[in-house]
Amino acid sequence: MNSLSRSLGVAAIVATGFAFAAPAFAAGAGEKPPRQTWSFYGPFGTYDKAQLQRGFKVYRENCASCHGLSKLSFRNLSEPGGPGFTDGQVRTLAAEYKVKDGPNEAGDMFERPARPSDRFPKPFANDELAKAANNGAVPPDFSVIAKARSYERGFPTYLFDIVTQYQQQGPDYITALLTGYEAPPKGVKVEDGLHWNKYFPGNKIAMSNPLLAMFDDAGKASDPNYYTDGTPVTKLQVAKDVTAFLMWAAEPKMEERKRTGVKVMLWLIVLAGLLFMLKKRIWSRLDAEPSKAH
């Protein structure tokens, strides 16, 4: 390709950029979630164990009664790259849950305390029961929720994301949602059983503010010692902690993946360097005597 075609190509890309630099948002979309800082951002990012443990506490006490973690087993909580609970802690924790097992020799199903190898039991026996208890909406399972929520990045921002590694649309959205409950704007009527949230698409969300009981109207924590590790109990902190936990739940092998990736990349870079030198060397034979190549 000569310079003409190259400059045409560049012109084409630039023109596209100008034409679509300001994408319109679909009607009824919620506000764009603000960017948060996450320990798991970037190629070397890892989970913050203490944060995952705090997030698990928040999940258990505020979300678990409606939202399941059906793809996770209790044992996951003590596996590498996770919250780092001890095996003993996990055994004790699991035993607090009841799971259905059987049939036994008499042919009966029975309940027993959960073991670390069991999956988290579902909060509702079936979807109909979940609906009946929640105003007709099934509370979604949380196993992969942090990867199942997103918002539009728009052109050309999403192309830059490839380089900047931004992929936290899900976590940013969840944190925004948890902190986005407020009074509806004047003149807007919110139907019974719905709540106003400035980040929820359409703004009217069936879920009531799950952190309502933890903070008073001024945003002060009702229990300042809610966290035992001394972390200040603020609305944003609590939202971020449970979000981080959900991110881990959705991507429990992230640390292993990135660690492997760094090794793979280094290996590829070295190999590419060697191959490039070899290529130069082999092709330089042609400079001497082209027709002797065969």
Partner: peptide
């Protein structure tokens, strides 16, 4: 390829497919 697989594995997919 490795950049996407190891560091940005869901970029080319769609969040809705995790529902």
């Amino acid at each position: 390829f490795a950049w996407f697989v190891f560091f940005h594995p869901n970029f080319l997919g769609h969040a809705d497919n995790y529902i």
